[in-house]
Simulated assay, not measured.
Amino acid sequence: MRQIFLDTETTGLYPDQGHRIIEIAAVEIFNRRPTQRHFHVYINPEREIDAGAQEVHGISLEFLQDKPLFSQVAQEFIDFVQGAELIIHNAPFDVGFLNMELSRLGMERLEQSVSNIVDTLKMAKEARPGQRNNLDALCRHFGIDNSKRTLHGALLDAELLAEVYIAMTRGQESLLMELSGAESQVSQAALNVDYSALKLLVADHEELATHHQYIDSLAKSGAKPW
């Protein structure tokens, strides 16, 4: 299965108030193994960045001045995620921003390009009710090294999310391995039958005579004995 772990950084919290995306990162995993393929881009938002948002991600408008516009990277992004399962922490936030940006260009909603969208924040809340379930808390819970995460950065966060997701779903992987192992054992058992222990029973003369009489009666009636 092809899965894409995605994160964004933005100028603020609310796309309906004109806030824009300034960074997109998407990391690819195939059959639960990293492929080393990723999509990562900084974007010029053509507007100011809220002070609170800049404190979180540390990205300044000055740094973004020479970066491409969303319109210049939109198709490349869609091509990268096309047909994959998207896995996002707090998916409604990122999907809301991406759909806003796509709608500005008259492009289809993100849901039309991917096979599925999984929200790992929702998964974590169901598995750990009443506990902190942000990315840092989940890294601590699963023993994942997040020491490089001094600020929110989309690429690092997407990579950490991939590790968290693999850890969260490890039980499913073990179950599949157990089922596969059991199937292998059954197949092997079928191959290891000791045919020398089987008894060969041969029909006697009386049984053979009765059988031939039955075949003859079928033939006389016009029925086929096979």
Rank of each mutant, 00 (worst) to 15 (best):
Arg140Met: 13
Thr120Lys: 00
Leu135Phe: 10
Phe70Asp: 01
Ile21Glu: 01
Pro68Ser: 04
Glu76Cys: 07
Val202Asn: 10
Leu155Asn: 10
Phe80His: 01
Thr169Phe: 05
Trp226Pro: 02
His152Leu: 12
Glu207Gln: 12
Ile88Gly: 03
Val27Trp: 03
Tyr42Pro: 01
Ser147Trp: 05
Glu178Ala: 15
Ala158Pro: 04
Tyr214Lys: 09
Ile117Val: 03
Val114Ala: 00
Arg32Ser: 14
Ala182Gly: 07
Leu176Trp: 11
Ser217Gly: 12
Ser113Val: 11
Gly130Ser: 12
Asn192Leu: 13
Met1Ile: 14
Gln75Asp: 09
Ala162Lys: 07
Glu206Asn: 07
Pro92Tyr: 05
Glu108His: 07
Ser184Lys: 12
Ser174Ala: 13
Gln75Ile: 05
Gly153Asp: 11
Glu108Pro: 08
Val56Tyr: 13
Asp94Cys: 00
Gly18Met: 06
Ile144Val: 10
Trp226Ser: 05
Arg140Gly: 06
Phe5Arg: 03
Asp119Pro: 08
Thr8Gly: 06
Glu9Met: 06
Glu183Asn: 15
Phe70Ser: 00
Pro129Lys: 13
Ile21His: 00
His152Ser: 05
Val164Arg: 02
Gln65Thr: 06
His152Asp: 10
Gly58Ile: 09
Ala25Met: 10
Val193Tyr: 14
Tyr165Val: 09
Leu98Phe: 01
His211Arg: 10
Thr169Cys: 03
Gly130Ile: 11
His19Pro: 09
Ser180Thr: 15
Tyr214His: 09
Asp16Thr: 11
Thr150Leu: 09
Val81Leu: 07
Glu9Ser: 03
Leu13Val: 15
Gly12Phe: 02
Val56Pro: 07
Gly52Ile: 09
Asp204Leu: 02
Glu108Asn: 13
Ala84Gln: 01
Glu48Arg: 14
Ala223Val: 12
Asp204Thr: 02
Leu200Pro: 04
Phe80Ser: 04
Ile4Asn: 01
Val164Asp: 03
Asp136Trp: 09
Ala26Asp: 04
Trp226Lys: 06
Leu156Glu: 14
His212Lys: 14
Val186Trp: 09
Gln72Asn: 04
His205Phe: 13
Asp204Trp: 03
Arg132Gln: 14
Leu135Ala: 11
Leu110Asn: 02
Met100Ile: 00
Met123Val: 15
Gln131Trp: 10
Glu207Asn: 07
Ala197Tyr: 13
Phe142Cys: 04
Asp204Glu: 06
Glu183Pro: 13
Leu161Gln: 02
Asp50Phe: 02
Leu155His: 06
Leu155Gln: 09
Lys67Met: 12
Lys224Ser: 00
Ser184Pro: 09
Ser221Val: 00
Thr8Pro: 06
Thr169Val: 07
Met1Asn: 04
Ala51Glu: 14
His40Met: 08
Leu61Phe: 15
Asn133Ile: 15
